[in-house]
């Protein structure tokens, strides 16, 4: 089962853009699987920004926000590699299941099918709430 995630990378500002692209490509190759050959939905380069506080000796970071959909079992290995990469000064992965699904259609499809597999029970369905998805958030400190 694939789930949708969003990752924010903060790269060292000294790293060049071409190198950032290369690194991202390497990371994103890890998220591919047979049933999901195109995991990346959107890559958004925010560019250089001043950090709200210094991380190590960095005052400026190069931000990249990526939305992807992948199997959760692939994430630990992916995170391990992101952590090892020295040009990434920080990252954060959050579940990004989009807007809160409208609950109306559910009662109509009363064919006995239950939304069992992580399905939209109310607290889980809301990505930006603390509730269920919290444990999957990458709350990792700097590399």
């Amino acid at each position: 089962m694939t789930r949708r995630y969003e990752i924010v990378y903060i790269f060292n500002s000294a790293v060049e853009e071409a190198q950032v692209d290369q690194t991202l490509e390497r990371f994103h190759a890890l998220l591919k699987s047979e049933e999901n050959p195109e995991p990346i939905r959107n890559v958004n380069h925010w560019g250089k920004r001043t950090l709200a506080y210094s991380i190590g000796s960095n005052e400026i970071g190069y931000y990249v926000v990526t939305q992807f959909a992948t199997d959760p079992t692939l994430l630990p290995e992916f995170e391990r590699l992101v952590k090892l990469e020295e040009s990434v000064i920080r990252y954060q992965i959050v579940l990004n299941e989009g807007e809160v699904p409208v609950p109306a259609p559910l009662p109509d499809t009363s064919d006995g099918e239950k939304p069992s597999d992580g399905g939209p029970s109310k607290p889980d369905a809301d990505p930006s709430k603390g509730g269920g998805p919290k444990d999957e958030e990458g709350t990792n400190e700097e590399n």
Binding site: A52, G130, E137
Partner: peptide, 17 residues
């Protein structure tokens, strides 16, 4: 509730102090 989570996340990626 949402703001609490959002602010904490924003802090982690250095958007907010």
């Amino acid at each position: 509730r949402q703001l609490g989570t959002a602010i904490k996340r924003a802090r982690h990626i250095a958007l907010l102090p």
